[in-house]
Design a protein around this nucleic acid. Structure first.
Length: 842
DNA sequence: GCAAGGTC
């Protein structure tokens, strides 16, 4: 039996289909799919790995140990031997002593000092995909020939080499070879299997050098940053060859913004009206840099009421259809629609696995000739009623696909398969699927034509202009409306026509600093600078958010992120720039071409890092202080009204809940609750202090809603709301008592709720929305008898039944997607239960 | 509790 090992399941399946006499049979070994087939009567089996099946790591003896912490040594107290290059002494940091750990945490002194040892520590390869390895060994034992058919690139060669080392453990003598194909199509694959070669160990070694160097630098610098000032468990300060230069890009942009000196300019703008239509007009000098000139011009037009059209110019321009999606362009387009690159990849993976779209990790932007474009459009038309009309147009047209700049042959650009019913997808999946499907259709359509009209208007001797864009021929825009500007229609006017003019104003403006990166832009910038790969960029950005180096979108660095870059820029500059990646690529090329060896390249890199450590260790405390200060600055919400020290977001050790507390604790005991469900940030200047009580005022940003400002002190008069009687208590009436339902606001937590005046006896209480002005209606709900109240939000007044378990809400929940998981399926069973359930959730 | 690279 011949065993074919591919990098992933889809490749194993495709190879089987392309090589088999007839159709391959799907089989399972343990729980993994394999494909059995015959080639000229001979038995073959193909299996897919899951990328790398081994992961490099330090030996167990020197790894993290639950009892000992990060820096343990071997049992006999001896530091493990490492291959230290000639001329370099063996690390003198070996200790015979077992580390002493008080309460599991001892970060003082020797821990950072022991990092040079980690620099020279040996690296071993540990199984990362145990199931896959088990299947691989099972099949290898029965095989009389093993063919490595992983992707034709450096990582593919390494994955194949790792697979071979697993094979060798159970079948030391089985003949092995390598099939090299660069596209999963008949000609390529059959040619590769007709011309089998040997695995290129130099190329695999190059890949392994990359792994080792990434691990050593990442582990040493991450541990250094984390331990310089230990911020408690869960507060890792990471660093790495790709993430650190990426963070540096964001920090650099922020610094440019801070250094930016805005320039004043002035604009004269107003409104014009003619033929029952209104439109914007502006002075022909779009930006006056001279204030006096602007004021002179404005004085002429300030009281003008009419203007005269002096010219009408129409120009039409074409907008070309977009190119096919690869990973980066999909991530950028999805980011513009509010889906982060990391989430895009998670959703794309699920769409790919369920057969809706093609393989999502590609660089290619040119459809291969073998792709059945019309067949896909047909499939979309029959599965998606919303796309059917535009699909028909595409099928009727010439269907000439656009081409992007990058052409590779490994996978086609990301496209819908045309299979599957989009109605079965959830919200995020459907949104991304429609983006991919619409993009695909757009790449097969003609350009859009936009007609631009420019009016020149004389207002009291001053030249004004107006401009309008109208989409006259939708072209590809019929399928792909993303990022399309709304039409700005001007009335049909001719030279000499008179227009009414009003609201002409002189506006003082300032030039804007360079914009922050959006997540989509950052992915593109990383690609441009050679940072990361199509498969890793999204997760690296996400990582920078989880370690709290980045915040918000558009992306801002935190104070911590800036402190990290400053520190590394000073003491380990190599890791902060894309050059390390460039140099690593160069080293790897040398290893791959046999001009250098893996050991030499890795040892050279170890020596570079070791050379930095002396200074790093020397400045450990400076860096620790800088990090601590930055973390405090990030957590700051304002100044303490009692002692003037910083009020910061803190986490209670007991309850793990967060609160706002004074840095002066224990001398100062000022604390406030954190408003729930919102992101809190400090305000600046005068707005930062409450005029009523002196506590800080803060900015609260609810998810996808308008931000608001409030005083953090729930007892402050600005937060005071009188109790309102909202109705009579039904439970009490039924029990023959009298009880009134009253809306309160808790002084402690700031939460609002309704409670019966006889609460001790009847237990009735209802939660209330956190925001919005509340008023009673005196009405009761037709479904459950609970009171109806009105809450005024930014979107207008909103009538609600206060009972979360109201059967009336159940009907709505069944009809729409909203309101799921909130007492939906459960029958209304009394108000007391509602409160109990809600508090149990916390 | 660490990186980046594959992929699930």
């Amino acid at each position: 039996m011949k065993l074919v090992i591919a990098e992933k399941n889809i490749a194993a399946q495709k190879i089987a289909q392309l090589l088999a006499d007839g159709k391959p049979k799907t089989d399972k070994v343990y729980n993994t799919q394999v494909y059995r087939f015959t080639v000229s009567g001979e038995d073959w089996v193909s299996m897919g790995l899951a990328g790398h099946i081994l992961a490099p790591d330090f030996p167990d003896e020197i790894l993290f140990d639950k009892k000992q912490g990060w820096y343990s040594v071997s049992d006999d107290g001896e530091v493990l031997p490492a291959d230290v290059p000639d001329g370099l002494a063996r690390p003198p940091y070996a200790t015979k002593r077992k580390p002493f750990l008080a309460n599991g945490i001892n970060i003082k002194g020797w821990k950072v000092e022991s990092l040079p040892y980690l620099t020279w520590a040996p690296i071993v390869k540990k199984p990362a995909e145990k199931e896959i390895i088990r299947v691989l060994k099972n099949l290898a034992k029965k095989a009389d020939h093993v063919i490595i058919a992983t992707d034709f690139d450096r990582e593919g060669e390494l994955i194949g080499s790792d697979a071979l080392s697993c094979v060798r453990e159970v079948a030391p003598d089985v003949p092995t070879s390598r099939a090299r194909y660069s596209a999963l199509i008949k000609g390529e694959v059959t040619a590769a299997f007709d011309n089998l070669v040997e695995l290129d160990q130099d190329l695999a070694d190059a890949g392994e050098s990359r792994q080792y160097i990434d691990l050593i630098w990442g582990a040493v610098l991450t541990r250094y940053l984390t331990l310089a000032r230990f911020g408690g468990f869960g507060n890792v300060r990471s660093a790495g060859r790709v993430q650190t230069p990426t963070l540096a890009l964001v920090v650099e942009r922020e610094r440019e913004r801070m250094a930016f000196v805005p320039e004043d300019y002035w604009q004269i703008r107003g409104m014009a009206a003619a033929k029952d239509a209104e439109f914007k007009i502006g002075h022909a000098t779009a930006r006056f840099t001279d204030k006096a000139a602007a004021e002179t011009a404005f004085a002429h037009v300030e009281h003008a009421t009419t203007g005269t059209v002096t010219s009408v110019a129409k120009r039409s321009r074409k907008q070309q259809p977009p190119t096919p999606f690869n990973t980066t362009s999909l991530q950028a387009a999805a980011a513009a629609e509010g889906i982060s690159p990391a989430r895009t990849m998670r959703i794309a993976e699920s769409l790919y696995m369920s057969g809706f779209i093609s393989y999502p990790r590609v660089d290619n932007t040119v459809y291969p000739r073998t792709l059945d474009l019309a067949g896909i459009v047909d499939g979309l038309a029959s599965n998606s009623p919303a796309l059917r009309p535009v699909c028909k147009k595409v099928l009727a047209g010439p269907m000439k696909p656009t081409r992007g700049k990058t052409e590779t042959t490994d996978h086609p650009p990301i496209h819908p398969t045309g299979q599957g019913d989009p109605e079965t997808l959830d919200g995020g999946q459907k949104k991304l699927y429609m983006l991919i499907a619409r993009r695909f259709l757009a790449t097969l359509m003609g350009p859009a034509t936009i007609e631009n009209t420019k009016l020149a208007i004389d207002v009291a001797g001053e030249p004004f202009t107006a401009s309008g864009d109208v989409l006259v021929d939708a072209g590809f825009r019929e399928a792909y409306p993303y990022g399309l500007k709304r039409d700005e229609q001007l009335p049909a006017l001719a030279e000499g026509d008179t227009v009414d003019v009003r609201d002409i104003a002189l506006e003082a403006k300032q030039t804007e600093p360079p914009a922050r990166y959006s997540q989509g832009r950052l992915v593109q910038e990383m690609e441009k600078r050679g940072l990361g790969t199509k498969s890793t960029r999204a997760s690296i950005i996400e990582r920078l958010y989880t370690v709290k180096y980045l915040k918000n979108d558009p992306i801002e660095p935190s104070q911590l992120g800036m402190a990290i870059i400053d520190a590394l820029h000073e003491f380990a500059p190599r890791i902060t720039t894309p050059e390390m990646t460039a140099e690593l690529d160069e080293d790897m090329t040398h290893v791959a071409e046999g001009q250098d060896t893996q050991d030499h390249v890795v040892e050279h890199s170890r020596a570079l890092l070791a050379g930095l450590l002396d200074t790093l260790i020397e400045h450990k405390d400076d860096l620790g202080d800088a990090i601590a200060d930055a973390v405090t600055a990030d957590a700051r919400v304002g100044a303490c009204p009692k002692c003037g020290k910083d009020l910061v977001m803190k986490t209670s050790a007991k309850t793990r809940g967060s609160f706002i507390g004074c840095m002066g604790w224990p001398d100062c005991d000022v604390t406030y609750p954190v408003p729930s469900g919102v992101k809190v940030s400090p305000l600046e200047g005068e707005a930062a202090v409450c005029p009523e009580c002196g506590a800080p005022r803060i900015k609260c940003q609810p998810f996808r809603q308008k931000a608001y400002e409030m005083c953090v002190n729930p007892k402050c008069p600005t937060n005071f709301e009188p109790d309102i009687v909202v109705g009579e208590c039904r439970a009490c009436a039924e029990a023959g008592r009298h009880g009134e339902l009253v809306a309160h606001k808790s002084e402690k937590s700031g939460k609002r709720f309704i409670r019966c005046t006889n609460y001790d006896e009847c237990g009735t209480s209802y939660p209330l929305p956190a925001r919005g002005k509340l008023s009673a209606t005196g009405e009761v709900c037709e479904h459950c008898g609970a009171p109806i109240v009105v809450v005024e939000t930014a979107r207008g007044p909103w009538r609600i039944c206060v009972n979360m378990d109201c059967p009336g809400k159940e009907k709505k929940a069944a009809g729409g997607a909203r309101g799921r998981g909130r007492g939906g399926a459960k029958k209304a069973s009394g108000a007391k239960k509602t409160t109990a359930k809600r508090s149990a959730k916390k």
